[in-house]
Design a protein around this nucleic acid. Structure first.
Lengths: 222, 222
DNA sequence: CTTAAGTTGTTAAATGATTCACATACAAGA
DNA sequence: TCTTGTATGTGAATCATTTAACAACTTAAG
């Protein structure tokens, strides 16, 4: 004899837990694009959108968009489309739009300072809390952001800080090891070096040179 | 009766022309990584390598590496491995290592100037020939690189220039349209805007904010 | 020369991602 | 309220990429 509670539990499990399928990597890479596009559309006064309109706006198949959205939940209404504001709120919740992500910059050279002067951090992912550099002469303040000596990382790293932007020009691996020890679990690396991290730490490369090389390859192989 | 020439022709065609399969996108994205790793290994004095050694160095399956390499040609020797110098030469040939790629930077603000001061362009993909900015007050010279008014793009763009780095903060789409008109076929965009290009033009985004958002999503969904 | 050990390049199998196709449900107008 | 048109969300099919498995070949040693 099967108890009603078992049936309910089974359905809940099946519907909520088991359906929480792993989000494909390719899908994750498109989420920031969706958010970007939706904000643009909102700023143009659009408050409701269909998957094929959004698709033609960003060159993604409507059906790909619908499937990508479905990993997050049931966001649209059949026969109606999607509410732009709802979508933006949902995506911001997942992509750091609570604006309380504390980010540190490691390496206060040309690029590091350019990033500190970049004025679009707030209201996008959070704020740059502070920076670090191994060179004591770089210590000080840039655009209201304090720069500390790298040796003080474990003392000066903000509470709850998980993400670091790496703009050092030397000893990248060594620096990353220190960051992980200090509790960092996500790294954006601007260096052209390959860095090894444990598999519970995520690293993403923002590498102009690799991008140009890939572009040259594409241009040469039409 | 079949003539010997037909057999030879058939074999050549089958082996050389038909096997020139289209390189997968995923593979293209790994080529710069391979080149980077190989150069590192060479600087450590390694002149011969096996696919599984390289694989464990960069966390890519050896069999993926071998397949990726096979799109370019027969680069290794069975029972021996790969000659590091040969690999580097081959990849450099495909990825702009002839160092004669003339690159322009469009937008001479903080980021644009930081890129001009970045001193690792030479001997990697080519050189930054010049820069452009819509703001006449930015015109001048930065790190020996001339900065021209954007209005002069069609006159001042170097002959044979195919690749532009976009670091403008406004009117990205409009600027890109001008670049394409001036003969640019590959664009690295640092802007956070979505840009539309004809399908014979390639665009790659180097976008800190999207990267951070993707990282936040990953960190939140372990 | 012959054999053993080892690594590539590639065919075939497995996994991952995209697109098709359609049942389902909502919206809007009569 | 009913009916019609429309857009979503999702199994099933297709396409793309990765991994496994192995034949073919190279080196090196006896």
């Amino acid at each position: 004899m099967i108890h009603i509670q078992e049936i309910l539990w089974y359905n809940i499990k099946k519907g909520d837990v088991m359906n929480k399928r792993k989000v494909p990597k390719a899908t994750m890479q498109r989420y920031p694009l969706y958010l970007k596009a939706l904000k643009k559309l909102q700023s143009l006064g659009i408050d409701r959108i269909m998957s094929n309109q959004l698709g033609s706006f960003i060159d993604v198949e409507p059906t790909t968009i619908r499937r990508d959205f479905s990993f997050i939940g049931t966001l649209g209404k059949q026969g109606y489309g999607y509410d732009v504001e709802t979508l933006i709120d949902t995506f911001e919740g997942h992509l750091g739009g609570t604006y309380n992500e504390k980010i540190i910059i490691v390496g206060a050279g040309n690029l590091g300072r350019a990033l500190m002067n970049y004025n679009r951090w707030n209201n996008v992912v959070g704020e740059v809390a502070c920076a670090f550099d191994i060179d004591e002469s770089k210590v000080g303040v840039v655009n209201d952001i304090p720069v500390y000596p790298l040796s003080q990382i474990s003392k000066s790293i903000p509470v709850g800080c998980r993400i670091a932007i790496l703009t050092v020009s030397h000893d990248a691996q060594e620096t990353v090891d220190k960051l992980i020890e200090a509790g960092i679990v996500g790294i954006i690396s601007f260096t052209h070096d390959h860095i090894r991290v444990p598999k519970d730490v995520f690293i993403k490369y923002v590498d102009v040179i690799s991008s140009i090389q890939e572009l040259v390859f594409q241009v040469n192989n039409i």
